[in-house]
Design a protein around this nucleic acid. Structure first.
Lengths: 207, 207
DNA sequence: TACAAACATGAGGAAATCCTCATATAAAGG
DNA sequence: CCTTTATATGAGGATTTCCTCATGTTTGTA
């Protein structure tokens, strides 16, 4: 269940690329969309801007993405895939380590990813995003975080993993939302505080 | 320095009402804008919707607010005035009380205000808001919170008040950002945790 | 090479939105 | 009552944006 399935509710003629040229073009279009969404936000971004930024014509854009919503959905799915992969590899790296080290690594990677990919917040936290999609996305990330929490030593108690994974994702999201537009002097200490808070919350939850 | 001074940078012919009828109309227009911004968000809200919601013609709206940005700025200022007044009266109520009680009251009032006035987040946290305005708004609220912190017993040390007021506002903003669109099951405990965190942070900071 | 299907292109239709303006009405002062 | 100024109104111009479509080009394949 990857990105190609997270399409908007109203399915128009969303054609998937089959030739290699089409695959490259779709990738370039998503790169262009990523840049434009990051700079202007979802609402202010225009299809013409996205096509131009990708070096494509407006017609090419509409060939693969019949709607701006489709573009955002595809980009969102692509980011979720990347984040899920990142969490998977992280789970391997922190296996057997104390939970504090895992939290540090988790925060560092997540915050870095969002710094480098501001478009993810632009499409993932916008008002117009379908709540069902939002919910599913969070569930997916929660699952990966839960896997990470049972890999540490001592592992988090099985019965508490789901709830603690939710709290963890929650705090990371908060840090991410602060990231967006805050005074430089406040942001870093705030993120550090949230990280500390999470450690305190997870410490002593071993099973 | 109240709301009438927080106008957008490009000053067009922003006429202020002088007669009582005009004052009422401006108030109604801001009420309409508040409803529309809360439901649709700033970007998706249209001037026609705002005028209709206020029971006014589109021409009347443009008579007082030459731009949608002007509407948002005026509404933002109005909310800031209300919040400042709320904090002032709260400072009186918690005078002489322990800091924990003050924090509880502060969170309760602030969260309640934002629940009842979702338009404030819609105009105050949007991308297109001028950073200078945002900064000034936060400075204003920080000042009121600082006044509140020196009113408790024992009072917060003078030298630390500014920094602690910043942390306080910060955590309240985090709680507010969670408020917007989160799963009901996670929101309330998260806010409670943030409140606890703030108490722990402020405890023992007396002068 | 020749054919079919995928892909590319940009002018322009349709619709939405911002905002203006000429005209009309209400209110305040003399 | 009459003048002046503030306020009210909504049709419509100007612009922007989404999206379509007819036509042309490239790619894979037999």
């Amino acid at each position: 269940m990857s990105s190609q399935n997270s399409s908007p509710s109203t399915e128009k003629n969303a054609k998937a690329p089959s030739r290699s040229r089409g695959l490259k073009r779709v990738s370039a279009l998503l790169d262009g969309a990523s840049a434009v969404f990051a700079e202007a936000g979802y609402e202010a971004a225009t299809m013409t801007q996205i096509a131009a930024r990708a070096g494509a014509s407006i017609g090419s854009l509409y060939q693969f993405f019949p709607t701006k919503e489709h573009v955002a959905a595809a980009l969102h799915g692509r980011h979720l895939d990347a984040l899920a992969g990142m969490l998977d590899s992280l789970a391997g790296e922190v296996r057997g380590q104390p939970v504090e080290a895992a939290v540090d690594a988790l925060f560092a990677r997540f915050v870095a990813y969002l710094e480098e990919n501001p478009a993810f917040l632009a499409v993932g936290e916008r008002r117009s995003l379908d709540p069902a999609v939002k919910k599913e996305a969070r569930a997916r990330l929660r699952g990966r975080i839960a896997a990470l929490l049972v890999a540490v030593e001592p592992p988090i108690a099985e019965a508490r993993v789901a709830s603690l994974a939710a709290v963890t994702l929650h705090l990371i999201r908060v840090a991410a939302l602060l990231r967006a537009d805050d005074d430089e002097g406040v942001r870093a200490p705030a993120i550090a505080e949230l990280r500390t808070m999470l450690k305190r919350h997870l410490a002593g939850q071993g099973g």
